[in-house]
Design a binder for these strands. Structure first.
Length: 107
DNA sequence: CTCGTGACTCCCG
DNA sequence: TCGGGAGCCACGA
C-alpha cells in the first residue's frame, strides 16, 4: 500500500462481487477522490501485476472496457462473461443491471 | 524535489 | 449529436 487513497481503491475493487461491475469514477469517489478516476486505472495497473484484484470488473463510465484489443480487452470480456456478465451489441455492459456500488457504510 | 504519464471524465465547439 | 481538448491527482524515475 502506498497511501490510504490507493488502499481504498484497492479495497473497493476487491469488494466487487462476481457477476457485477463498477466504474472508475465510482471507485475513485468512494476512495475519496471523485476526480481520481485515472488514479484508479493506475492503481489497477499496478495491482493487476502485484495483487490479485478483479480488475476485469472495472469498466469506464459507459460500462465498456477501456482497454485495447492488444492490451487485455478480450481477456477482461471473457472473464466477465465467465462470471455471468453479458455484453450488448455494442460490447457494453448494462450498468442498470450489473453496475455495483461499494458499501456506503451507512452514510 | 520536479517532470511526465495514464485502463478517465467533463465541458465547450 | 458527435468530436476534440483540458483537467485531474497520485505514483514512478
Amino acid at each position: 500500500m502506498k497511501s490510504v487513497f490507493t488502499r481504498k481503491i484497492i479495497d473497493g475493487i476487491a469488494a466487487i462481487p462476481a457477476g457485477k461491475i463498477c466504474t472508475y469514477g465510482i471507485i475513485a469517489a468512494r476512495a475519496g477522490n471523485p476526480s481520481g478516476a485515472r488514479q484508479v486505472a493506475r492503481v489497477l495497473h499496478s495491482c493487476s501485476g502485484k495483487y490479485r484484484l478483479p480488475w476485469h470488473r472495472v469498466v469506464n463510465r459507459e460500462g465498456k472496457i477501456s482497454l485495447s484489443k492488444n492490451a487485455g480487452y478480450v481477456r477482461q470480456k471473457i472473464l466477465l462473461e465467465g462470471e455471468g456478465v453479458v455484453f450488448d451489441e455494442c460490447d457494453r455492459i448494462d450498468l442498470d443491471k450489473y453496475l455495483w456500488w461499494p458499501e456506503s457504510s451507512g452514510d
